[in-house]
């Protein structure tokens, strides 16, 4: 199960790197609909979604996953404030740097430090801030935030 997670992670990282989504400028080129628009991100999502949607239907015919006891798939269908507010905040942050969680972590292995020739761990700043943001959320959760429902 752990080995499967590693192998699947490698596959995911290959996909991110090949698709060009490790390049923040390319992501921002998609988000900038008023500029010289680059629809590549939409193609990446459509391809990923297409493959996964077909596979999902086949997988769910099974009673359980191959290596684990049970499927752990979210069952909630309600739309709440947290979902929308969280997505708004994520969108703003994504737009600021052109980096979302997958590419941020994959970039750690992609030679992001090679910019400018010298060691330039700029991506580490983003990853550290992202982990801090996640940690902050976990802290508020544990403290019983007022947004809790």
């Amino acid at each position: 199960m752990n080995l499967a997670a590693l192998a699947v992670g490698v596959l995911f990282g290959l996909g991110l790197a090949i698709s060009g989504m490790l390049n923040p400028a390319k992501v921002l080129g998609f988000l900038d609909i008023a500029g010289p628009w680059d629809p590549t991100l939409a193609v990446v999502m459509a391809a990923g979604l297409g493959v996964n949607a077909i596979a999902y239907r086949l997988t769910m015919r099974r009673a359980s996953p191959v290596l684990a006891v049970a499927f752990q798939v979210p069952a909630r269908r309600d739309i709440d404030v947290r979902l929308v507010l969280g997505s708004v905040l994520f969108g703003v942050g994504w737009a600021l740097a052109g980096i979302c969680p997958g590419p941020a972590l994959a970039s750690l292995g992609a030679g992001a430090w090679e910019g400018g020739g010298a060691f330039e761990p700029r991506i580490l700043i983003f990853v550290a801030a992202m982990l801090a943001g996640m940690g902050l959320f976990a802290f508020f959760e544990q403290a019983g935030s007022p947004a809790r429902r």
Binding site: G20, V92, G93, I123, I125, A129
Partner: peptide
């Protein structure tokens, strides 16, 4: 090298990272 130039300022990276981290967990 893959084309992964991180051109944003440190302030942008920190603010962006915080919002991405917190927002994705909340959402």
């Amino acid at each position: 090298p893959l084309a992964v130039p991180v051109e944003s300022s440190t302030f942008t990276l920190v603010l962006g990272g915080l919002l991405v981290g917190f927002g994705t967990r909340l959402g």
